[in-house]
Design a protein around this nucleic acid. Structure first.
Lengths: 138, 138
DNA sequence: GTGTTATACTTGCAAAATGCAAGCTCAGCA
DNA sequence: TGCTGAGCTTGCATTTTGCAAGTATAACAC
């Protein structure tokens, strides 16, 4: 699978965002890092949505090519590597929070923790700051 | 093309959102309504990204099936119809704003108006309220 | 040093989604 | 009665996805 930068469809910022993130899997990988504390290939594979291994490999390389993730050696096992958010990736935190709020509100069978969703709405900036802090400077 | 509700992949609210919105076109249609004041089939077709007519028809019916849009008769020409946002669709405003902010920040060639992006960041609630008002109660 | 296991992928192929061009339908108007 | 434009539908080639299987490399066990 190729992994080149996607063609730009227009100069609209929403269109730009969707050029990189407009599919069913990319933002789930970012969710896993951000809210699930996951950082390794095998951890992403274990998520509930059951991403296929070839699709995961493709998305990781695209997100890396887009500068949203970076692949770094694992300090505990230098032969392995970790996928971490870059500053560009960390800037997606507000997008993720709004997607979570919308999904939690409109999915009758949502599994979203009510308290956390309320906290996002009432104390947005603090939640953003916490997540940023937890994931370093990128 | 079918137009049934997509299969639920998990109970995660972000996954739920992506089940409906996770492609390159759905949110662009919503953008056209929200920021472009578009409401008719032909208007969506004319956008810069050049959506194919069969894909547009598919997305409109999926978004309607999802309760995000509703198709209403045009008061000026009752034989024609308009696509409008429902309350569930209006709740996507914060998501759209954050995607716009992210795209505007990270796309070196963005065409996003600087003043509007700054206003989203500095006066978020007011921008949300304005857009809600402009698109009625749904 | 040989075999076993785990992790992180790659490959092959069928199925589904997308993109493009060409229709088709129906209302309004001349 | 015929023409026009808006709003789709259809056919078909290309691309992307999903599933299963296979490969590479390193760590560890013996």
């Amino acid at each position: 699978m190729s992994t080149s930068v996607p063609p730009r469809r227009s100069d609209c910022p929403i269109s730009y965002s969707l050029d990189f993130l407009g599919d069913k899997w990319s933002l789930l990988v970012i969710r896993d890092i951000l809210f699930g504390g996951k950082r390794r290939y095998g951890e992403f594979l274990k998520s509930d949505e059951k991403i296929a291994t070839n699709i995961l490999a493709d998305r990781l390389s695209r997100l890396e090519a887009a500068g949203i993730l970076k692949k770094a050696p694992d300090p505990d096992a230098p032969a392995k590597s970790l996928y971490l958010l870059t500053p560009k990736g960390l800037d997606l935190i507000p997008v993720m929070l709004e997607l979570a709020v919308w999904g939690a509100k409109h999915d009758p069978g949502t599994g979203a923790p009510t308290a956390y969703i309320r906290r996002i709405k009432e104390d947005r900036e603090a939640v953003i700051a916490e997540l940023r802090k937890a994931h370093g400077k990128g």
